[in-house]
């Protein structure tokens, strides 16, 4: 608790810096492109169409409304990989600044994850469009989806902080992580039904894949239109905060030595 307090105590003073950094990321992302922010919606839509064409014939028997099934998993996974990858490089990318002025270093990681969050929320527009086009059923549970967004944001922030500090001392991290996320994608039941896996592997994913807790909840609320299992819901929050705790502790322990390695 004390660690949390002293780490985020400066946050109030630097809150405007976070806003500035996030708006910088968003401004520069689409600067000089004709469609600009429309790409945040269009991109997932196009990828969804490609993947639907490729996979729907393979799995269409088991999954009703494949586009929505796919998008609910994919947007979450995409947010997780882009935000943690950006967070991992956030300290090294801002090395010149960290060497020359005093700024709490976690601000850069926080800003990166947050700007990815904005992009993620925009990409949910694609999901909404697909739901309307495919005449998916809207239930009151749909409006619970922000709870999942908050959980995965906290989770990614924690993971991002951990990766950012590890990457400073051990640059091989980014290459290892690339392989890890690829494996992670195939183990998250994004474009196939989880029931098509062998029983023991299903159990493994449902228990040990943190991302699956979020995808499961997200699909329950949006795709199935039902309340999620209490166990999954509670574990989602627990995993998020435990990850954040680990992230903050490791980051705090090593942040004073960053300057010697960047």
């Amino acid at each position: 608790m004390d660690a949390l307090k002293s780490t985020f105590g400066t946050l109030y003073k630097y809150k405007d810096l976070v806003v500035q950094l996030v708006s910088r990321d968003l401004k520069l992302k689409y600067r000089r492109s004709f469609l600009g922010y429309v790409w945040s919606v269009l991109n997932p839509l196009l990828i969804m169409i490609v993947m639907t064409v490729v996979f729907s014939t393979m799995f269409s028997r088991n999954i009703h409304n494949f586009p929505v099934y796919l998008l609910t998993g994919r947007t979450l996974f995409e947010f997780m990989t882009t935000s943690t990858n950006a967070a991992m490089r956030s300290i090294i990318a801002n090395a010149s600044l960290i060497k020359k002025t005093y700024v709490p270093k976690y601000i850069f990681t926080l800003a990166k994850v947050t700007s990815c969050l904005v992009d993620f929320v925009l990409s949910l527009g694609a999901l909404l469009i697909v739901m309307i086009v495919t005449r998916a059923e809207f239930t009151p549970y749909f409006f619970l989806f922000p709870l999942v967004v908050i959980q995965i944001y906290i989770f990614c922030l924690g993971l991002g902080l951990f990766l950012a500090q590890a990457n400073v001392f051990f640059r091989d991290m980014q290459y290892i992580y690339k392989a890890v996320t690829t494996a992670w994608m195939y183990l998250s039941a994004i474009f196939y039904p989880i029931t098509s896996l062998p029983e023991n592997l299903q159990h493994f994913i449902k228990t040990y894949n943190p991302l699956y807790y979020y995808i499961q909840q997200f699909r329950d609320f949006i795709y199935e239109g039902q309340m999620t299992e209490p166990r999954v819901f509670i574990m989602g929050w627990v995993i998020a905060f435990v990850t954040l705790g680990i992230g903050i502790l490791t980051f705090r322990r090593s942040q004073d030595r960053f300057i010697l390695y960047i």
Binding site: Y14, D16, L17, V19, Q20, L21, T101, V103
Partner: peptide, 12 residues
């Protein structure tokens, strides 16, 4: 100007 100012710890 805004970015640099907030880096120095000033508010918007």
């Amino acid at each position: 100007i805004y970015l640099n100012g907030t880096v120095l710890g000033h508010s918007k």
